[in-house]
Amino acid sequence: GIDPFTGEAIAKFNFNGDTQVEMSFRKGERITLLRQVDENWYEGRIPGTSRQGIFPITYVDVIKRPL
């Protein structure tokens, strides 16, 4: 089901994660935001896939912030 505490964002740019914990994505992908890790990073996942990880806040347009 849908978790009411998650947020939502759209990727503004392609992001290629450097490490296992970073999640790569392509511009235009819809991302579920799980939490804000710190002032620069979100943790999120791509709905319908097993992809999950952290990524820079500046790479996405936030539609709804996670609670």
Rank of each mutant, 00 (worst) to 15 (best):
G1I: 13
I2A: 15
I2P: 13
D3Y: 13
P4H: 14
P4N: 14
P4D: 15
P4I: 14
F5Y: 13
F5L: 12
F5V: 10
F5C: 15
T6P: 14
T6Y: 15
G7V: 10
G7K: 09
G7R: 09
E8C: 14
E8L: 15
E8R: 07
E8M: 12
E8W: 15
I10W: 06
A11Q: 00
F13L: 12
F13Y: 13
N14C: 07
N14I: 04
N14L: 04
N14M: 05
F15P: 00
F15V: 02
F15M: 02
N16V: 12
N16K: 12
N16I: 15
N16R: 11
G17A: 13
D18F: 13
T19R: 14
T19D: 12
Q20F: 11
Q20H: 12
V21A: 15
M23G: 00
M23I: 06
M23Y: 01
S24V: 03
S24P: 06
F25H: 02
F25D: 00
F25N: 00
R26I: 14
R26F: 11
R26T: 13
R26A: 11
K27L: 07
K27W: 05
G28L: 03
G28I: 01
E29T: 05
E29K: 01
R30I: 13
I31Q: 00
L33N: 05
L33S: 03
L33K: 02
L33Y: 03
L33P: 01
L34E: 04
L34Y: 06
L34H: 04
R35P: 01
V37E: 03
D38L: 06
D38G: 11
D38T: 08
E39P: 09
N40K: 11
N40P: 03
N40Y: 15
N40E: 12
N40W: 13
N40M: 13
W41G: 02
W41N: 08
Y42S: 03
Y42W: 15
E43Y: 14
E43G: 03
E43M: 11
G44H: 01
R45T: 11
R45K: 12
R45L: 11
I46W: 01
I46S: 01
I46L: 03
I46Q: 01
I46Y: 01
T49W: 02
S50V: 10
S50T: 13
S50E: 14
S50I: 10
R51H: 04
R51K: 06
R51T: 03
R51L: 04
Q52K: 10
Q52H: 12
Q52D: 03
Q52S: 09
Q52N: 07
G53S: 01
G53K: 01
I54R: 09
F55E: 00
F55Q: 00
P56H: 04
P56C: 04
I57L: 09
I57Y: 05
T58D: 13
V60L: 05
D61K: 11
V62D: 03
V62E: 04
V62R: 05
V62W: 06
V62P: 05
I63K: 06
I63L: 11
K64L: 08
K64Q: 10
K64T: 10
K64M: 08
R65H: 15
P66R: 01
L67Y: 07
L67P: 15
